[in-house]
């Protein structure tokens, strides 16, 4: 198969980038999208060009590293897969394929198709955890968890943190990412203890980082490779409102020894 590729090239965060056109030929329909890009890069290296930089690692759809915006959709035209699981048979021979990086203020471009997603790490650091230390925890079966709750928590926890939700959103909002983490932990008794504090901290951090707001278009759900549902955003809203309206005011407690 042959393709014309229009790829965003940008040397680093400080300079301007542009779309550059490349041709690739003789691609097997069984090649993955990245193997097609590998072929292009091999050609560029051999001819003294500069290979295209893109993020990728596990190439089996779970690490969440890959992040290409292909023909107007994060992770390309096939629903429920990451870029690394996309195969060239999903494209027509001779097609022109536009490849861009995720676009968001909170995800600055590092080079070519690579963006900096450490904003997601910061959001998790703001509260996406249960505050327990190693050791001193009760036996795993001490607290039964209803199977349905546990399954719903797992549905939310399946998020791979790739950022496709932000890329797809017309407002570059990160609500699905945060909604998924808030839901995962709020649904479990272990996470309920800090639920009120967690959601407020994570939302505050999200705002600080410059993500957009949700207008409930559900583009995030449509393009999420793991099919995370927007009902998680509703749950986050509920948790947030409940926390704002009903949680106790935090007091500073001084412990003198």
């Amino acid at each position: 198969m042959n393709f014309t590729l229009k790829i965003w090239r940008q040397k680093n965060v400080a300079v301007k980038g542009e779309m550059i056109s490349y041709d690739v030929s003789g691609i097997s329909p069984d090649s993955s999208f990245f193997e097609m890009l590998d072929t292009l890069n091999q050609k560029l290296i051999m001819t003294g060009g500069d290979p295209v930089a893109f993020d990728h690692d596990c190439r089996e759809g779970i690490c969440g590293t890959c992040s290409l915006y292909i023909n107007g959709r994060p992770h390309g035209p096939v629903k429920g897969v990451t870029t690394c699981q996309l195969h060239m048979r999903s494209f027509a021979d001779g097609e022109t394929i536009h490849i861009e990086p995720w676009r968001a203020k909170a995800f600055p471009v590092i080079r070519d198709l690579i963006v900096d997603r450490s904003a997601f790490d910061k959001i998790i650091q703001a509260g996406g955890y249960v505050s327990v230390n190693t050791g001193g925890v009760p036996d795993a079966n001490t607290i039964p968890v209803p199977k349905e709750k546990s399954e719903a928590a797992m549905d939310a926890a399946a998020c791979i943190g790739c950022g496709a939700c932000v890329a797809a959103c017309s407002n570059a909002a990160a609500m699905l990412f945060i909604g998924a983490k808030v839901s995962h932990l709020a649904l479990l008794p272990q996470g309920r203890v800090e639920a009120a504090k967690r959601v407020q901290k994570m939302v505050a951090c999200m705002d600080e980082l410059g993500f957009g707001n949700c207008s409930n278009t559900s583009a995030c759900e449509a393009d999420c490779p793991k099919g995370i549902s927007v009902s998680n955003i509703a749950r986050m809203n509920r948790e947030f409102l409940g926390a704002k309206l009903f949680s106790e005011k935090e007091k500073v407690v001084r412990v003198s020894l």
């Binding site: 909170a106 570059a172 707001n213 559900s218 449509a222």
Partner: peptide, 22 residues
Amino acid sequence: QNKGARPTSYAVNNSSDTSPFS
């Protein structure tokens, strides 16, 4: 806020499956 969250826009407009009006 939403406009500011994406200072550089895409070359190809988003074509996700969403309600066209939203």
